[in-house]
Every structure is written in structure tokens, then in C-alpha cells.
Design a protein around this nucleic acid. Structure first.
Lengths: 151, 151
DNA sequence: TCATATTGACAATCTAATTGTCATTTTTTG
DNA sequence: CAAAAAATGACAATTAGATTGTCAATATGA
């Protein structure tokens, strides 16, 4: 895989890194009894923003039904609370409870150790350059993929 | 998602880029009647290397049974051919047929247009820096994840 | 108001993958 | 060389994570 174009190599590496990261992530997510979709929902709500089920589904690019189930379970477990949606009377907004916020904080702490190892030998400048580049790719990519997020 | 640590942001972007890329990939893969695993097998065999089913499974980090099914189907479709394995008499090696090679070449051509758009506005230096960084992350990551590939 | 769209709930289905099992080699080791 | 251990291919059952379809109950907007 070495002698390909740099563009191709980067996408190849993104695929492999995603799989490797997902595999590592499974470990600590399972320890908390969570699935990847649960983590994604918590992540979307970790900023102050409260979102409705359809909004989360749109951002995560999955069906609203899937997120509905995920959110209902997180609600049941006390990680989320709902409050009225000023924009839509039937579809309430969801936000993290203190417990839910603490849970996501713990998940992030678990990840931190892995991240440190993953980036151990990478110079700071390269990290920043990579961050900037991937961000440009992502938002460029998204525009052609007909999404309009702003966060 | 902006005010996180750069490390965290990079992994966040990798997750999002993977999903966005996978979604785009589905389009042209389906057009060729292929699934992601098919593409992965073709990709592993696109270099001259001929591999056995267990070897491919190890590299792709999935169960050998899964790759067995995939390889059998690709063989049936005439994209792969088998030849004796000098290292193991029962487990034959697989390589691309000319048709299979041409198929993967076409897939890569379909991807090329998407890649160009994805990297359209990224300076060459940034591309190279990102490639180098992700590669370091991947191989660092893999070592701790008990894999020992050499390609 | 009335037509259209959205939402939540639930069921059925789908896909990609894992795990389990078994007979058949193959390899290793005593 | 013989016996034990491991690897392989085939097949079945199961799982996880998601989609799609449907429907009744609201909401929204012309």
C-alpha cells in the first residue's frame, strides 16, 4: 500500500484507523454497557445543546428510528432528560443529566490514555497540521454530501 | 466539537470521515455489485502478492470464516483465481484474475473523482504531513494492537 | 381549515459479521 | 514414525447495528 497516491493512502489509513480505533473503543464502551450509537448520542449532547431525536439522527446520518430507540434507552437509564421543544410541540429536546454528563466524561477519560499512546511520538506541528487538514476534508466533503451542520 | 484537544478532534474527524467516505463508497461499490469486504479483499490482492484466506482475514482483522465466504464468491464470479500454496498444502493462495484486476482498477477510477474533490483545496505540504502522521499513528496503534503486518 | 409533513412507536427485515461445530488435512512433536 | 495438536474449509446459528415499512397521533403551513 506504500506506492499509491498520497490521497489514496490517506483514505486507506482513515479506513484502517477507524477500524482499529473502533476495536479499542469497544473495550471501554462495553465496560460501561454502551454501544457506539450510545456514545455518539452522548457526544452530540455533551455541548450545552439540547437536540430532538430527528436532529440527532440527521447529524449522525442514521435513521431517526434508530436514534429513537437509542435515546429511549439512555433516557430509561437516567443519562438523558427531556424538556419541551419550543420549535416543535410533539418532539421534545434531550439533554444530558448530571449522571449522563459524568458518564461521558468517564468515557473520555478512558479514551485519553489510548489517545496518548496513539499520538505518543507525533510532533505537535504534525498533529496540528493533520487536524487542520482533516477538518478541511470533512467540511469540504460534507458540503458535497448535502449536510449543513454548523457545530 | 471545536474546543476539544487536537488529539480528540482528530479521532472525531477520523470517525466522521470514515462514515462519510463509506457512504460515498457504497454508491460505486453497489454499482459493481460489491460489498465493502469484497473491495477490501481486492485491495489486499491488488499488489502482486497472493494470499490465503486466513492471511487475508488476519490482515483485515475479521474472522477467517467471513473472508472465506467473500473469497468463494469472488472466485465464483471470476475475479480471483487460486493456486497452490507452497507454505500450506490445504490452504491455497488467491490472486486477482485479469478481470478482477480490471475491476479494482475501475473501482479506483471511480474513487479518483471523489478523492480529487475531497482534497481539492488542500495544500500539497499538508497532504504529505497528514499522510505521514496518520501512517505513524496507524503503525504505532497496530503494534499495541498485536498485529504484525509488513506490507 | 384542510392537506401535508413530522413524530414516536413498533415490527419486520437486512447486512455484515461473529461464534460454534465438524470432518479433513496438515503440521509439529515426542 | 506415530500420536497429538493446530489449521483449514464448510456450513449453521446467532448477533449487532442498522434500515425500511407502517400506523396513529400530532403539528405545521398553505
Amino acid at each position: 500500500m506504500q506506492n499509491q497516491s498520497p490521497h489514496y493512502e490517506i483514505t486507506w489509513l482513515i479506513r484502517r484507523l477507524f477500524r482499529a480505533m473502533a476495536q479499542l473503543a469497544d473495550g471501554y464502551l462495553q465496560a460501561h454497557g454502551l454501544a457506539a450509537a450510545d456514545r455518539a448520542v452522548l457526544e452530540f449532547l455533551y455541548p450545552e445543546e439540547a437536540l430532538s431525536v430527528p436532529e440527532i439522527a440527521t447529524r449522525y446520518q442514521v435513521s431517526r428510528q434508530h436514534i429513537q430507540v437509542t435515546v429511549n434507552a439512555l433516557l430509561e437509564d437516567g443519562f438523558l432528560r427531556s424538556r419541551p421543544n419550543p420549535r416543535h410541540k410533539r418532539s421534545s429536546l434531550f439533554a444530558l443529566t448530571p449522571v449522563g454528563r459524568e458518564l461521558f466524561r468517564k468515557i473520555r477519560a478512558s479514551e485519553a490514555g489510548l489517545l496518548d499512546r496513539l499520538f505518543a511520538d507525533i510532533p505537535t506541528d504534525d498533529v496540528e497540521c493533520t487536524r487542520r487538514t482533516l477538518q478541511a476534508m470533512y467540511f469540504h466533503n460534507l458540503k458535497q454530501g448535502e449536510i449543513d451542520e454548523s457545530s
